[in-house]
Every structure is written in C-alpha cells, then in structure tokens.
Computed example of a mutant assay.
Amino acid sequence: MKLDSKYFDSIRVSSRRSGSAKKETRAPGCQWKGCDKPGMHKAPKGRGRDGEYFNFCMDHVRQYNHDYNYFDGMSDAEVNNFRKDALTGHRPTWKAGANAWAHGTRDGVRTEEAAARVAASTARTTRRARSSRTEPSNFRRQLKPLERKALRTLDLGDEATREEIKTRFKELVKIHHPDANGGDSRSEEKLREILQAYNYLKQAGLA
C-alpha cells in the first residue's frame, strides 16, 4: 500500500496498553471484603461446593490459599475415611473375583437378604463336601450266578478280594488233596470242584 493512499488514514492500530486496559475493566472485582481491585484469580469455595470459585486479586488469593483447609470441620476419623476412599475414587470396592451381589451390597448399601442367601448356599456346599468325605461307599460288586457259585465253593462271600480268593484256594487244596486223605474219593471230587471254581474265577478276572 502506498503512503499517499486514501485508505492509509482509515487504518487504526490499537496499542497493547489500551487492550489491557479494556481487559482490566471487564474483569470482575475482588470478592475480598473491602478490596476494590480486579479479581483476576479463582479460588475454590470449599468442600461440598465443587466447581464454584471466588474471584480474588493476587494479594488476597495468596492469603486465601494460605489459610485454606479442605477438611475444615471434619473429625480425624472422617478425614482418614476420606483419604482411604480417595484411593479408589470414592467408589465401592470388593475382593477379587466377587461383585456387589456376592457380598450382599448394591450401590454401596448392605442387603441382609442377599447376605443370608450367600451364607445358606455356602453352608449347603460345605455339608455336601463333608458328607462325600465321611459317608462309606455302598458299592456292591455285581456278580454273575456262576461267579457267586464259584465263591461259595471256596467258602467265600461276594466281597472277597483277589488275595483272599488265592489264600483260600491254597488252604482248601492242602485240606482236600488225596495224599492228605489217604486217597479218599470224596476228597478227590471236592478238590476237582475247588480247581474248577478257582479257574473260573481266574478267567473272570476275580482271582
């Protein structure tokens, strides 16, 4: 733009000083009693009034901050509880792996009915666990008629173990062997029955 342009005279540049003066006039006044300076600095109004501020000048905001105590009016116990809750953002917490319903709480309020349900469920589970450990087993071996007959031949019951069958077989062989009975035919016949019964139990996997 040329210096002799007709637009040159119409351009007006405001100085920084004039701008700052206008800013000062728009600022709210200091809210400190008896102070008429501009309140350019914000100070919190205190606990329970979050988001609300006073407007003070520099001198008075320093004085206000120096004497400010967020916990004013609270007991030591209340202060300790507040600091403890502040670690979790003042939200309710539970043990790992549990929730509000499991602990009988909802929205931070204890629910006695829910607590009773949890306690009853725990007691039932404990009783079932103890019962399964202490009650004797009622299991009975299912035998075929010929297996039961073979056990009776050896003078044994249905619950005879493998070792008991072998031991009884050896005892009966000694008792009914022909050499021990002077060649008695009845002993020979009994020995034959014992041998057949034992061999059958062995094939059935019981001896």
Rank of each mutant, 00 (worst) to 15 (best):
N80K: 15
P92R: 01
H103G: 06
L154H: 10
E78R: 14
P136F: 04
Y68I: 02
A116H: 10
E112I: 10
V118Y: 06
N99H: 04
S132D: 06
G97P: 02
A129H: 02
M74Y: 12
R110M: 10
R141W: 03
A86L: 14
F71H: 08
W101K: 06
N81E: 14
A150F: 12
E112A: 12
Q142E: 13
D85L: 15
Y70C: 01
R83T: 02
A119S: 12
P136C: 01
G104I: 06
D155M: 13
A86E: 12
L146N: 14
G108T: 03
G73W: 03
R127I: 09
E78A: 15
K84N: 10
D155F: 13
A100N: 00
A120E: 15
M74H: 06
R148H: 09
T153C: 12
A114M: 12
R106N: 02
T93V: 10
G104P: 05
A100R: 00
A98Q: 10
Y70E: 05
T111N: 11
T105A: 07
E113A: 08
R130N: 07
S137C: 05
R124F: 04
R148M: 11
S131T: 10
T88Y: 07
T105V: 07
T88A: 08
Y68V: 02
G104T: 04
L151C: 09
R130Q: 08
A100I: 00
R130A: 07
A86H: 11
R117D: 05
E113P: 00
N81C: 09
Q142L: 13
R117Y: 06
A77P: 03
N138M: 05
P145H: 03
S121Y: 11
G97F: 02
M74I: 09
A119Q: 14
H90S: 10
F71L: 04
H90F: 14
T126I: 10
T134S: 11
L146F: 09
V79K: 15
R91H: 06
E78P: 08
A100M: 00
P92S: 03
S131V: 00
D155A: 12
L151M: 12
R127V: 06
N99W: 01
H66L: 12
A129S: 03
G73K: 07
F82M: 10
W101G: 00
N65I: 05
L154E: 10
L146G: 01
T88R: 06
E113I: 02
